[in-house]
Design a protein around this nucleic acid. Structure first.
Lengths: 116, 116
DNA sequence: TCAATATATGAATAACTGTTCATATATTAC
DNA sequence: GTAATATATGAACAGTTATTCATATATTGA
């Protein structure tokens, strides 16, 4: 498998790309974060949490599905740094981890011309 | 399944969240876009394309894997509006669809404290 | 038209992921 | 301590997805 003959600029871009490729570990972390927000149910949770922190059952009300499924999804979101949680009495209140999360959501919606 | 007794603000947030939940169709499109960029191999392609447009075999050089696999991945990225392509003679040159894509990547890396 | 190069694609398999069900843990009120 | 409420979790199954292999299509130059 050989590489095609391109204008110099393209070949140079390919070499730079190879040299500056991030470490496997960073790639995996970024991929994990995007994977976490790439399922409709988990995305709904994030859209719900735009409005402030919520307990699990409120989230269930907002996004549908069962308590168990939502709880599993929350764990995945938390493990990937998308949401955070704090206990308040019997409840665990979830919220978006920081302003990056909302910023990424808004960029994606702008890119796809969604009206959210 | 009942909903817990929270401070008013939390209940209000839950109600707003339910009312303002985006349409299923928009949710699916956003989820699809994130899913497209949530696999390590496809993410590598995007990091490679930061450096400018490239033909398929250059991309293969930069990210590893086989031509067939990369081609399948490129199709998925294109179908979800992440990359675009143009033909130049025998080659198809791929590039990031627009500046939103790079912006999302950079936000994610900043969020996860990656050095890219 | 023929050969060479570049890219795409259908089908099959293996690996991964989401949901469900049953149950476990933690907190509060009595 | 016991009951009730809220949340988490392990295991299993079903559905999805990535990769591989073989092959197809498209462009170029002779």
């Amino acid at each position: 498998m050989t590489v095609c003959n391109h204008p110099e600029e393209h070949t140079a871009a390919a070499e730079r790309a190879k040299r500056s490729m991030p470490e496997e570990e960073d790639i995996a972390r970024v991929a994990g974060a995007f994977k976490a927000i790439s399922e409709p149910c988990r995305l709904k949770i994030l859209f719900a949490l735009r409005h402030g922190e919520m307990c699990v059952l409120h989230i269930v009300e907002a996004v549908g599905g069962t308590q168990s499924a939502v709880s599993h999804q929350l764990r995945l979101l938390k493990a990937n740094g998308i949401v955070k949680s704090r206990r308040e009495g019997q409840n665990i209140l979830y919220s978006l981890d920081d302003e990056h999360v909302l910023a990424v959501l808004e960029l994606a919606c702008a890119h796809l011309h969604c009206h959210i």
